[in-house]
Protein backbone atom coordinates (compact mmCIF):
# COMPACT_ATOMS: atom_id res chain seq x y z
CA UNK A 1 0.00 0.00 0.00
CA UNK A 2 1.24 3.48 -0.76
CA UNK A 3 0.91 6.64 1.25
CA UNK A 4 -1.60 8.04 -1.19
CA UNK A 5 -4.18 5.43 -0.22
CA UNK A 6 -4.83 6.69 3.29
CA UNK A 7 -8.24 7.89 4.29
CA UNK A 8 -9.07 11.56 4.61
CA UNK A 9 -9.29 12.54 8.30
CA UNK A 10 -12.82 13.01 9.55
CA UNK A 11 -13.35 16.47 11.04
CA UNK A 12 -13.57 16.05 14.79
CA UNK A 13 -16.16 17.39 17.15
CA UNK A 14 -13.32 18.40 19.49
CA UNK A 15 -12.18 22.01 19.53
CA UNK A 16 -8.92 22.99 17.78
CA UNK A 17 -7.01 23.46 21.05
CA UNK A 18 -8.15 20.07 22.39
CA UNK A 19 -7.14 18.44 19.10
CA UNK A 20 -3.74 20.12 19.16
CA UNK A 21 -3.15 19.04 22.74
CA UNK A 22 -4.12 15.45 21.97
CA UNK A 23 -1.87 15.41 18.89
CA UNK A 24 1.05 16.80 20.87
CA UNK A 25 0.54 14.26 23.62
CA UNK A 26 0.33 11.29 21.24
CA UNK A 27 3.41 12.45 19.29
CA UNK A 28 5.49 12.70 22.46
CA UNK A 29 4.22 9.28 23.58
CA UNK A 30 5.04 7.84 20.14
CA UNK A 31 8.59 9.21 20.29
CA UNK A 32 9.11 7.93 23.85
CA UNK A 33 7.86 4.47 22.84
CA UNK A 34 10.19 4.30 19.84
CA UNK A 35 13.75 4.51 21.07
CA UNK A 36 15.24 4.08 17.61
CA UNK A 37 13.16 6.99 16.38
CA UNK A 38 14.35 9.10 19.33
CA UNK A 39 17.96 8.28 18.44
CA UNK A 40 17.47 9.31 14.82
CA UNK A 41 15.69 12.52 15.83
CA UNK A 42 18.76 13.36 17.91
CA UNK A 43 21.07 12.56 14.96
CA UNK A 44 18.90 14.57 12.58
CA UNK A 45 18.82 17.58 14.89
CA UNK A 46 22.61 17.26 15.25
CA UNK A 47 23.00 17.20 11.45
CA UNK A 48 20.82 20.28 11.08
CA UNK A 49 22.82 22.07 13.79
CA UNK A 50 26.08 21.09 12.06
CA UNK A 51 24.72 22.50 8.79
CA UNK A 52 23.52 25.74 10.43
CA UNK A 53 26.70 26.30 12.44
CA UNK A 54 29.11 24.87 9.85
CA UNK A 55 31.23 28.02 9.76
CA UNK A 56 31.73 27.95 13.53
CA UNK A 57 32.40 24.20 13.65
CA UNK A 58 34.92 24.15 10.80
CA UNK A 59 38.44 24.22 12.21
CA UNK A 60 39.97 25.66 9.01
CA UNK A 61 38.80 27.59 5.98
CA UNK A 62 37.37 24.74 3.84
CA UNK A 63 38.51 26.27 0.54
CA UNK A 64 41.98 27.47 1.61
CA UNK A 65 44.75 25.44 0.00
CA UNK A 66 48.03 24.56 1.75
CA UNK A 67 50.33 22.65 -0.65
CA UNK A 68 52.87 21.90 2.11
CA UNK A 69 50.43 19.70 4.04
CA UNK A 70 48.61 17.93 1.21
CA UNK A 71 47.39 14.29 1.44
CA UNK A 72 47.85 14.03 5.21
CA UNK A 73 46.21 11.18 7.13
CA UNK A 74 43.90 11.98 10.06
CA UNK A 75 45.70 13.59 13.00
CA UNK A 76 45.00 15.84 15.97
CA UNK A 77 45.42 18.91 13.76
CA UNK A 78 43.38 17.55 10.82
CA UNK A 79 40.74 15.12 12.11
CA UNK A 80 39.94 13.69 8.65
CA UNK A 81 43.30 14.48 7.06
CA UNK A 82 43.88 16.85 4.16
CA UNK A 83 43.11 16.58 0.45
CA UNK A 84 45.33 16.85 -2.65
CA UNK A 85 45.48 20.64 -2.26
CA UNK A 86 46.12 20.55 1.47
CA UNK A 87 42.58 21.58 2.40
CA UNK A 88 41.27 20.32 5.74
CA UNK A 89 38.87 17.43 5.02
CA UNK A 90 36.98 17.72 8.32
CA UNK A 91 36.15 21.38 7.61
CA UNK A 92 35.13 20.50 4.04
CA UNK A 93 32.86 17.66 5.18
CA UNK A 94 31.24 19.92 7.82
CA UNK A 95 30.71 22.69 5.25
CA UNK A 96 29.41 20.03 2.86
CA UNK A 97 26.58 19.34 5.34
CA UNK A 98 25.44 22.92 4.86
CA UNK A 99 25.54 22.57 1.06
CA UNK A 100 23.62 19.27 1.16
CA UNK A 101 20.95 20.43 3.61
CA UNK A 102 20.39 23.60 1.60
CA UNK A 103 20.07 21.52 -1.55
CA UNK A 104 17.60 19.17 0.12
CA UNK A 105 15.41 22.05 1.35
CA UNK A 106 15.43 23.97 -1.96
CA UNK A 107 15.01 20.93 -4.22
CA UNK A 108 12.22 19.43 -2.10
CA UNK A 109 10.51 22.85 -1.93
CA UNK A 110 10.54 23.06 -5.73
CA UNK A 111 9.08 19.54 -6.01
CA UNK A 112 6.53 20.20 -3.30
CA UNK A 113 5.24 23.53 -4.61
CA UNK A 114 5.07 22.51 -8.28
CA UNK A 115 3.77 18.98 -7.60
CA UNK A 116 1.15 20.04 -5.04
CA UNK A 117 -0.19 22.94 -7.14
CA UNK A 118 -0.39 20.66 -10.22
CA UNK A 119 -2.02 17.90 -8.16
CA UNK A 120 -4.57 20.28 -6.60
CA UNK A 121 -5.53 21.68 -10.01
CA UNK A 122 -5.67 18.29 -11.72
CA UNK A 123 -7.66 16.69 -8.91
CA UNK A 124 -10.06 19.55 -8.23
CA UNK A 125 -10.65 20.96 -11.72
CA UNK A 126 -10.33 17.65 -13.58
CA UNK A 127 -10.87 17.81 -17.35
CA UNK A 128 -8.20 19.55 -19.38
CA UNK A 129 -6.06 20.45 -16.33
CA UNK A 130 -6.02 16.80 -15.27
CA UNK A 131 -5.23 15.63 -18.81
CA UNK A 132 -2.35 18.08 -19.35
CA UNK A 133 -0.75 17.57 -15.93
CA UNK A 134 -1.22 13.80 -16.15
CA UNK A 135 0.41 13.53 -19.59
CA UNK A 136 3.30 15.74 -18.46
CA UNK A 137 3.95 13.49 -15.48
CA UNK A 138 3.67 10.35 -17.64
CA UNK A 139 6.28 11.77 -20.01
CA UNK A 140 8.58 12.75 -17.15
CA UNK A 141 8.33 9.31 -15.59
CA UNK A 142 9.43 7.80 -18.89
CA UNK A 143 12.91 9.22 -18.23
CA UNK A 144 15.18 7.37 -15.81
CA UNK A 145 15.62 9.87 -12.94
CA UNK A 146 19.31 10.69 -12.95
CA UNK A 147 19.47 10.78 -16.76
CA UNK A 148 16.66 13.34 -16.87
CA UNK A 149 18.56 15.41 -14.33
CA UNK A 150 21.67 15.09 -16.52
CA UNK A 151 19.70 16.25 -19.59
CA UNK A 152 18.30 19.25 -17.68
CA UNK A 153 21.69 20.28 -16.25
CA UNK A 154 23.20 19.70 -19.69
CA UNK A 155 20.69 22.18 -21.12
CA UNK A 156 20.90 24.77 -18.34
CA UNK A 157 24.67 24.49 -17.84
CA UNK A 158 26.63 22.89 -14.99
CA UNK A 159 26.26 24.38 -11.51
CA UNK A 160 24.78 23.75 -8.10
CA UNK A 161 21.64 25.85 -8.62
CA UNK A 162 20.81 24.29 -11.98
CA UNK A 163 21.32 20.87 -10.40
CA UNK A 164 18.94 21.83 -7.57
CA UNK A 165 16.29 22.77 -10.15
CA UNK A 166 16.85 19.45 -11.93
CA UNK A 167 16.57 17.46 -8.70
CA UNK A 168 13.49 19.51 -7.77
CA UNK A 169 11.85 18.64 -11.10
CA UNK A 170 12.63 14.94 -10.50
CA UNK A 171 10.43 14.99 -7.37
CA UNK A 172 7.37 16.62 -8.99
CA UNK A 173 5.55 13.39 -10.06
CA UNK A 174 5.61 12.01 -6.52
CA UNK A 175 3.79 15.03 -5.04
CA UNK A 176 1.55 15.39 -8.07
CA UNK A 177 0.21 11.85 -7.84
CA UNK A 178 -0.07 11.92 -4.08
CA UNK A 179 -1.93 15.25 -4.06
CA UNK A 180 -4.20 14.38 -6.96
CA UNK A 181 -5.29 11.11 -5.34
CA UNK A 182 -5.98 12.83 -2.03
CA UNK A 183 -7.89 15.68 -3.67
CA UNK A 184 -10.11 13.26 -5.60
CA UNK A 185 -11.14 11.70 -2.27
CA UNK A 186 -11.34 14.99 -0.38
CA UNK A 187 -13.53 16.85 -2.85
CA UNK A 188 -16.35 14.39 -2.17
CA UNK A 189 -16.26 15.16 1.56
CA UNK A 190 -18.93 17.19 3.28
CA UNK A 191 -16.63 19.97 4.40
CA UNK A 192 -15.78 20.73 0.75
CA UNK A 193 -19.45 20.66 -0.21
CA UNK A 194 -20.20 22.98 2.70
CA UNK A 195 -17.52 25.42 1.55
CA UNK A 196 -18.96 25.35 -1.97
CA UNK A 197 -22.46 26.01 -0.65
CA UNK A 198 -21.38 29.09 1.32
CA UNK A 199 -19.83 30.44 -1.88
CA UNK A 200 -16.09 30.02 -1.24
CA UNK A 201 -14.03 30.46 -4.40
CA UNK A 202 -12.48 27.36 -6.00
CA UNK A 203 -8.95 28.55 -5.19
CA UNK A 204 -9.93 29.20 -1.58
CA UNK A 205 -11.43 25.72 -1.32
CA UNK A 206 -8.29 24.17 -2.79
CA UNK A 207 -5.74 25.99 -0.67
CA UNK A 208 -7.64 26.78 2.56
CA UNK A 209 -9.90 23.76 2.92
CA UNK A 210 -8.52 20.77 1.01
CA UNK A 211 -4.77 21.37 1.32
CA UNK A 212 -4.63 21.44 5.17
CA UNK A 213 -6.65 18.23 5.26
CA UNK A 214 -4.35 16.32 2.92
CA UNK A 215 -1.08 17.66 4.34
CA UNK A 216 -0.07 14.58 6.38
CA UNK A 217 1.01 12.25 3.56
CA UNK A 218 2.70 15.20 1.84
CA UNK A 219 4.77 15.83 4.98
CA UNK A 220 5.84 12.18 5.03
CA UNK A 221 6.72 12.22 1.35
CA UNK A 222 8.72 15.43 1.84
CA UNK A 223 10.68 13.95 4.72
CA UNK A 224 11.55 10.87 2.65
CA UNK A 225 12.37 12.95 -0.40
CA UNK A 226 15.02 14.93 1.49
CA UNK A 227 17.23 11.84 1.47
CA UNK A 228 16.51 11.20 -2.20
CA UNK A 229 17.36 14.82 -3.08
CA UNK A 230 20.71 14.61 -1.26
CA UNK A 231 21.48 11.31 -3.02
CA UNK A 232 20.56 12.66 -6.46
CA UNK A 233 22.56 15.83 -6.03
CA UNK A 234 25.57 13.95 -4.70
CA UNK A 235 25.40 11.76 -7.82
CA UNK A 236 25.31 14.82 -10.10
CA UNK A 237 28.23 16.38 -8.21
CA UNK A 238 30.09 13.08 -8.45
CA UNK A 239 29.64 13.29 -12.23
CA UNK A 240 31.07 16.82 -12.12
CA UNK A 241 27.98 18.71 -13.32
CA UNK A 242 26.54 20.06 -10.04
CA UNK A 243 28.78 21.73 -7.46
CA UNK A 244 31.84 23.27 -9.07
CA UNK A 245 35.27 23.65 -7.42
CA UNK A 246 36.06 24.85 -4.81
CA UNK A 247 32.54 24.34 -3.34
CA UNK A 248 32.84 21.67 -0.64
CA UNK A 249 30.18 19.23 -1.85
CA UNK A 250 30.21 15.59 -0.68
CA UNK A 251 29.63 14.08 -4.14
CA UNK A 252 32.35 16.21 -5.72
CA UNK A 253 34.76 15.32 -2.88
CA UNK A 254 34.23 11.59 -3.50
CA UNK A 255 34.74 12.14 -7.22
CA UNK A 256 38.18 13.60 -6.53
CA UNK A 257 38.90 11.24 -3.64
CA UNK A 258 38.41 8.14 -5.81
CA UNK A 259 41.50 9.12 -7.83
CA UNK A 260 43.64 9.30 -4.67
CA UNK A 261 42.44 6.16 -2.88
CA UNK A 262 45.91 4.58 -2.84
CA UNK A 263 47.46 7.79 -1.35
CA UNK A 264 44.81 8.93 1.09
CA UNK A 265 41.57 6.97 1.36
CA UNK A 266 40.16 9.50 3.86
CA UNK A 267 39.51 11.91 1.00
CA UNK A 268 36.65 9.62 -0.04
CA UNK A 269 35.72 7.96 3.25
CA UNK A 270 34.85 11.17 5.15
CA UNK A 271 32.32 12.54 2.64
CA UNK A 272 31.07 8.99 1.88
CA UNK A 273 30.26 8.39 5.55
CA UNK A 274 28.59 11.81 5.76
CA UNK A 275 26.27 11.07 2.81
CA UNK A 276 25.42 7.66 4.21
CA UNK A 277 24.64 8.96 7.71
CA UNK A 278 22.48 11.79 6.39
CA UNK A 279 20.48 9.69 3.91
CA UNK A 280 20.09 6.82 6.40
CA UNK A 281 18.77 9.26 9.02
CA UNK A 282 16.31 10.73 6.53
CA UNK A 283 14.99 7.30 5.58
CA UNK A 284 14.66 6.10 9.18
CA UNK A 285 12.85 9.30 10.19
CA UNK A 286 10.61 9.11 7.13
CA UNK A 287 9.65 5.51 7.95
CA UNK A 288 8.89 6.35 11.57
CA UNK A 289 6.92 9.44 10.61
CA UNK A 290 4.86 7.37 8.20
CA UNK A 291 4.07 4.90 10.97
CA UNK A 292 3.09 7.72 13.30
CA UNK A 293 0.85 9.56 10.87
CA UNK A 294 -0.83 6.43 9.58
CA UNK A 295 -0.42 3.24 11.62
CA UNK A 296 -2.21 1.29 8.86
CA UNK A 297 0.83 1.85 6.65
CA UNK A 298 3.25 0.30 9.11
CA UNK A 299 5.40 -2.11 7.13
CA UNK A 300 5.25 -5.70 8.21
Amino acid sequence: MVAGERLVPIPSALGESALAARRKHSLSRFIVNHRVLSAFIVIFVALVLVAVFADALATYNPTKTAPTIKMRSPSGAHWLGTDYLGRDMYSRVIKGAQVSMRVAVIAVSISLVVGVVMGLMAGYFGGLADLLCGRYVDAQLAFPGILLAIAIVNALGPGLYHAMIAVGILGVPLYFRLTRGQVLQAKEQEYVRAAEVIGASRWRIMFRHILPNIANPLVVAASLAGGNAILALAALSFLGIAAQPPTPDWGAMINIGKDYLHNNMWMAIGPGAAIFLTVFTYYMLGDALRDYLDPRLKTR
Binding site: G227, L231, A234, A235, F238, G251, I254, N255, G257, K258, L261, H262, M265, A268, I269, G272, I275, F276, V279, F280, Y283, M284
Partner: peptide, 29 residues
Protein backbone atom coordinates in the same frame (compact mmCIF):
# COMPACT_ATOMS: atom_id res chain seq x y z
CA UNK B 1 18.48 -3.57 2.93
CA UNK B 2 18.30 -0.35 4.96
CA UNK B 3 22.07 0.16 4.94
CA UNK B 4 22.61 -0.43 1.24
CA UNK B 5 19.56 1.54 0.12
CA UNK B 6 21.08 4.54 1.92
CA UNK B 7 24.58 3.97 0.56
CA UNK B 8 25.01 5.69 -2.83
CA UNK B 9 26.37 3.38 -5.52
CA UNK B 10 29.43 5.58 -6.04
CA UNK B 11 30.33 5.31 -2.33
CA UNK B 12 29.82 1.54 -2.47
CA UNK B 13 32.03 1.36 -5.56
CA UNK B 14 34.80 3.30 -3.82
CA UNK B 15 34.54 1.02 -0.75
CA UNK B 16 34.78 -2.11 -2.91
CA UNK B 17 37.88 -0.75 -4.67
CA UNK B 18 39.45 0.12 -1.30
CA UNK B 19 38.83 -3.34 0.16
CA UNK B 20 39.10 -5.77 -2.76
CA UNK B 21 41.51 -3.97 -5.08
CA UNK B 22 43.80 -1.87 -2.91
CA UNK B 23 43.77 -3.69 0.45
CA UNK B 24 43.38 -7.40 -0.40
CA UNK B 25 44.42 -7.05 -4.07
CA UNK B 26 41.98 -9.72 -5.23
CA UNK B 27 40.51 -7.73 -8.12
CA UNK B 28 41.61 -4.90 -10.35
CA UNK B 29 40.33 -1.38 -9.43
Amino acid sequence: SLVFVSLPNFVLGVLLILLFALHWRIFSP
